[in-house]
């Protein structure tokens, strides 16, 4: 009894005002409305949610882990982007 696979959705919830939506898991549904309802029933059972996003998993474009050196290493050497790189004279105090 093999059926066509039901589309997979990724679920993001925002637990409190001021926080960003965070990925909490995934689920199966045939359309967006059913995905939203299922997300509500599956991922908000303990009342910690103000907002839900559902996104078709197929819509997510991911970077290739094998390319992580090319993609992300170059930023690691640019330490001048961080405030601690700069010395401020002690008598100036907190900046």
């Amino acid at each position: 009894m093999t059926e066509t696979a039901t589309p997979l959705w990724e679920v993001f919830v925002r637990p409190r005002n001021g926080l960003a939506h965070r990925h909490v898991g995934s689920l199966h549904a045939h359309d967006a409305m059913m995905a939203l309802q299922a997300a509500r029933d599956v991922y908000t059972r303990r009342g910690e949610t103000l907002s839900i996003w559902v996104v078709p998993s197929s819509a997510i474009v991911a970077s290739d882990p094998a390319e992580k050196d090319m993609m992300f290493e170059p930023t690691a050497t640019k330490i001048y982007r961080h405030p601690t790189f700069y010395d401020v004279p002690d008598d100036v105090g907190h900046m």
Binding site: H28, A29, M34, A38
Partner: peptide, 11 residues
């Protein structure tokens, strides 16, 4: 009919 719906009906 689905695991998702089992959870929904329980709610």
């Amino acid at each position: 009919p689905t695991l998702e719906e089992d959870i929904a009906l329980a709610n």
